[in-house]
Structures are given as C-alpha cells and as structure tokens.
C-alpha cells in the first residue's frame, strides 16, 4: 500500500530509527512499511496516525477510486 510515511518522517528530519523508537518497532519494520512491502496492522496504523496527527487515509492510500455500496 502506498503511503506518505517517508515524506512525513523527512518533514520532521527523523531517521527510520527515530520513527521506530516512537512506534516501538524495528528499523526493518519502518523500512518495510515505507516501501510498501508490509502493510501495518490497524493498531499500528492508528499509532502512526496519532503520531503525525493526521487521519489514516491521509497517510495510507489503498488507491481505491470507486464508490462503496451501502
């Protein structure tokens, strides 16, 4: 899944280690999420959302463009 994590991290001049420290995950985890190789769990996505004070959908993009039927 595409995401803005690397950009948001750069805006704060944080290393992957810094972000890993804030999220209590390893640098490999941060790298895997940034490069779209791993999609975080919902609890971790909420943690990221709170850390950057942004809604989840502004950080993660599932590239869905249609409308949801209800």
């Amino acid at each position: 899944m595409k995401n803005q994590l690397k950009v948001l991290r750069a805006m704060r001049n944080w290393s992957q280690a810094d972000l890993g420290e804030h999220l209590d995950v390893s640098r490999q985890a941060v790298n895997a999420i940034e490069t779209g190789k791993y999609d975080p769990s919902l609890p971790l996505a909420f943690k990221i959302s709170r850390l950057f004070d942004l809604p989840i959908e502004q950080i993660f993009d599932d590239e869905f463009e249609g409308a949801v039927d209800v």
Partner: peptide, 12 residues
C-alpha cells in the same frame, strides 16, 4: 549505518 537503534531492536 544509523546513529541510534530503537530500544526494541537493541533488546533483539
């Protein structure tokens, strides 16, 4: 390769 390592990674 990085200035610091997250605490969880240090324990690991």
């Amino acid at each position: 390769s990085d200035q610091k390592v997250p605490q969880r990674e240090k324990v690991y």
